[in-house]
C-alpha cells in the first residue's frame, strides 16, 4: 500500500463491521484534537483526558474483552503533524475460537455472528500514517490466544520525515491458569514499517500448531521449541524522538557477556539496529508475561517523558 492510500480520508458512514478510524490533529498551541474517532462493533475506541501537552491517548477495546473466530477489526490511524498518539488496550487481547457461552439461541440479534465463525481466524488489520514530527506509541497489552484459536494481525506503518514510533507487539502462551500453554492453532503477526516511502523492516512471525511429520523424529510442538518461555515481545523503535532510548539500550546490550549457562535465564533479549542505526528492533522473552512487562517498563523508560508519567504508568499497569 502506498502512503497516500493510508492517508485518504474515509467517510465515517462507510466504516464496516469492526472498522475504526482515528485522525489526530494539532490546533493552535499545544492543543490536539480528534478530527475523527469512530468505530463499529466489536471495536470500541475511547479517549480519556490527558494532561500532557500535545499527547492524546486512545484505548482500543472490544466488546466482551475479546475477539472470536471470524471477527475482523480494521483500524486506520492518522497521527497529524507534531502530535503524539498513544494507543493502548485494556487488559490483554483475548482470542477465543468461539465466544464463551455463545449458543445460537443466545446470540444478540442486532449483532448476528457469521456462520463460519468457529472455523475462520480472527483478523486485525491496522494501518498507521505518522506525519512529520509526529509520534506514535503503540503500547498494547499482549495478545493471548486461547485453545484452538487462530489469529492474524497485519500492521502497516508509514512514517514521514522526522516521525517517530514505538511499536510493541507481544503475545503469551495462552491461559496458563487453565493449563493452556501454546495450544492455540495459529498466531500470525506482520509488522511492515516504512520511513519516507522506503521500507525499513518487515517482521512476519508465524506460530502454528502444525509440526511436520518427520518420523522417526519426534514432532516438535510449539511448547517444545519455545520452552521455557511463556511470553515473547518485539519492540520497534524508529525516529528522532527515540534516539536516546536506542542509544541507551545499545550501550546496555553491548556490555552483556555470555558465558556458558547450564540452563536458560528467566528473561532474555536481543537488539538489532536497522536503517543505518536510525531504528532498532528489540526482542524479549520471559518465563511470565509479568517478567517481560517489568523489563519493558524499565527498558523503555525514556518514553515516559514523551507521553507523561500517568500515561506511561497506564501502559505498563
Amino acid at each position: 500500500m502506498s502512503p497516500s492510500d493510508a492517508q485518504r480520508p474515509t467517510d465515517i458512514r462507510k466504516i464496516s463491521v469492526g472498522g475504526g478510524r482515528i485522525v489526530l490533529n494539532k490546533l493552535a498551541g499545544q492543543i490536539v484534537t480528534f478530527a475523527e474517532l469512530s468505530s463499529t462493533y466489536p471495536l470500541k475506541l475511547l479517549s480519556p483526558k490527558v494532561t500532557e501537552d500535545g499527547v492524546a491517548v486512545v484505548y482500543a477495546l472490544t466488546y466482551g474483552g475479546g475477539l472470536v473466530g471470524g471477527d475482523r477489526v480494521n483500524l486506520s490511524v492518522e497521527v497529524g503533524a507534531a502530535t503524539s498518539l498513544v494507543l493502548l488496550t485494556q487488559g490483554s487481547t483475548k482470542v477465543f475460537k468461539t465466544r464463551p457461552g455463545d449458543r445460537l439461541s443466545s446470540l444478540p440479534t442486532q449483532f448476528p455472528r457469521p456462520a463460519h465463525e468457529s472455523t475462520s481466524p480472527t483478523t486485525q488489520i491496522m494501518n498507521f500514517a505518522v506525519a512529520p514530527s509526529a509520534a506514535l506509541f503503540l503500547l498494547p497489552e499482549p495478545v493471548t490466544c486461547f485453545r484452538s484459536a487462530a489469529y492474524n494481525q497485519v500492521q502497516t506503518f508509514h512514517l514521514a520525515a522526522n516521525a517517530s514510533a514505538v511499536i510493541l507487539d507481544w503475545f503469551t502462551s495462552g491461559r496458563k491458569s487453565l493449563g493452556e500453554e501454546w495450544v492455540f492453532s495459529r498466531y500470525y503477526s506482520a509488522n511492515d514499517i516504512w520511513v519516507e516511502g522506503k521500507r525499513v523492516a518487515k517482521d512476519v512471525m508465524l506460530l502454528e500448531d502444525d509440526p511436520v511429520d518427520a518420523s522417526p523424529l519426534p514432532r516438535r510442538q510449539l511448547r517444545d521449541k519455545l520452552a521455557p518461555y511463556a511470553c515473547f515481545a518485539t519492540t520497534f523503535l524508529f525516529g528522532p524522538l527515540v534516539q536516546p532510548a536506542i542509544k541507551k539500550l545499545s550501550c546496555r546490550y553491548e556490555t552483556i557477556q555470555v558465558f556458558k549457562c547450564t540452563a536458560p535465564d528467566k528473561l532474555i533479549w536481543s537488539l538489532s539496529l536497522v536503517d543505518d542505526g536510525a531504528g532498532a528492533i528489540v526482542r524479549t522473552a520471559g518465563l511470565e508475561p509479568e517478567d517481560v512487562k517489568m523489563w519493558l517498563k524499565e527498558a523503555l523508560r525514556d518514553v515516559e517523558e514523551l507521553i507523561g508519567v500517568d500515561t506511561y504508568r497506564r501502559a505498563f499497569a
Binding site: Y188, D203, V204, M205, L206, L207, E208, K225, L226, Y229, F232, T234, Y253, I256, Q257, V258, I268, W269, S270, L271, S272, R283, T284, A285
Partner: peptide
C-alpha cells in the same frame, strides 16, 4: 515468515558470547 521467535533472539545474541 519466521516461525521461531526464540531462535531469532538467540541468533541475535551471537556476538555477545
Amino acid at each position: 515468515a519466521t516461525t521461531w521467535p526464540l531462535g531469532e533472539i538467540l541468533a541475535g545474541r551471537h556476538d555477545l558470547q
